[in-house]
Design a protein around this nucleic acid. Structure first.
Lengths: 197, 197
DNA sequence: CAATAGATTAGGTAAATACTTACAAAACTA
DNA sequence: TAGTTTTGTAAGTATTTACCTAATCTATTG
């Protein structure tokens, strides 16, 4: 008979900020005080939205997959010919990598895998991602000019590995951007099928 | 005119243990107290060997590359035909991955890249590794039956990416060991040249 | 309006943690 | 053996940090 709860809306509003902070600082360096500051609320409020810091992190892991998958589906929204789908995603990834702090969250999570909950969240995320990549590669191949003797699931793992190292290269500036993009595209083509160069 | 210092020997003796702890717990979760416990000394002694915790971590990063490179050179010690060198390393890596906690250290270091010293250590490590892989791939190709239109440096980055994702797969048990090994070998062949399967 | 339940504030706390200090013991050299 | 320097012990400290409590404010509804 009074004020309806808005916790749902508020968590949705704050979650992107939480993601951002975790991906900037990693899990351990991110303090609840810092999270509160960046969200422009008191710590208490965060603790009303999530039971503890770990829950905030788990929410971030889930969200990071969701948002990445969303971007992909936008890229493919105008239903290009399937053989271009892979190419488009590859192009997008080679240029915009790390935009969502995806990998930094993954890296920090990977050093917390002795926590069962975090492990499970990561496993689910990777499985979903692998599946997503698989279906795109499959579609691209089935339709025509992409050919390779590499099984689809293996090519998909290869692509995930490529995306990972490519992000590390970007993070550490091991190659200038252009060169990294070319590297990504070339190796991806080698994995997915089709001529290189 | 008195007792000669043995700090050199002692750091050499303790460094592998330090590496182990950092790779188990990551940088932040590793406390100096835990390091001391595992090394079976008091914290003080660690601080006599290294000025601070970060220095211990940097030493670990350096050591981890050194020990990995050492293992590789042992594998290649009996000078196999160069075209088998890549194959051997690939086989070894596919089976023994993570034995030296290599990737866990890298992952935890990657979330600390806003520290200049750590960034530099990582950059050097990756450059050395890339070079090492390059020279092996090059040797393998130059000598004969491995062929590919993928430039050597790109193939090398691809391999490093493959090793990374393969280690994540192992860490998260995303694939059973055999399947992971086959995946590694197959994708590696695709990158390095030669028929797959 | 008035009552009720949620939203926000501010301050606090117990535990953990990087690093220090003071001192005793042991070992090497002269 | 005496003198000097390294090695080891034990306790301490200032700070940080996850999380809590209690009180005040504010919006919604009968």
């Amino acid at each position: 008979m009074a004020r309806p709860s808005q916790t749902e809306e508020q968590s949705k509003k704050l979650l992107p900020i939480v993601c951002e902070v975790f991906s900037e600082l990693g899990y351990r360096r991110t303090t609840t005080a810092e999270l509160a500051n960046r969200c422009d609320v008191r710590e208490n409020i965060l603790y009303r939205l999530w039971p503890d810091k770990k829950a905030m992190f788990l929410a971030a892991i889930d969200d990071i997959f969701r948002s990445r998958a969303e971007v992909w589906s936008e890229i493919l929204a105008d239903r290009p010919a399937p053989e271009q789908a892979v190419e488009r995603i590859v192009k997008y990834e080679s240029q915009h990598q790390g935009e969502f702090g995806f990998y930094r969250i993954v890296f920090t999570a990977l050093t917390e895998t002795d926590d069962e909950d975090i492990r499970v969240a990561l496993v689910n995320m990777y499985k979903s991602f692998h599946q997503l990549v698989c279906s795109q590669v499959e579609a691209g191949r089935g339709s025509g000019d992409l050919e390779s003797d590499l099984p689809v699931e293996m090519a998909a793992w290869g692509l995930l590995g490529l995306a990972t190292i490519s992000n590390i290269i970007r993070e550490l500036k091991l190659l200038p951007p252009r060169q990294r993009e070319r590297m990504f595209a070339t190796v991806a083509k080698c994995l997915v099928g089709g001529e290189s160069s």
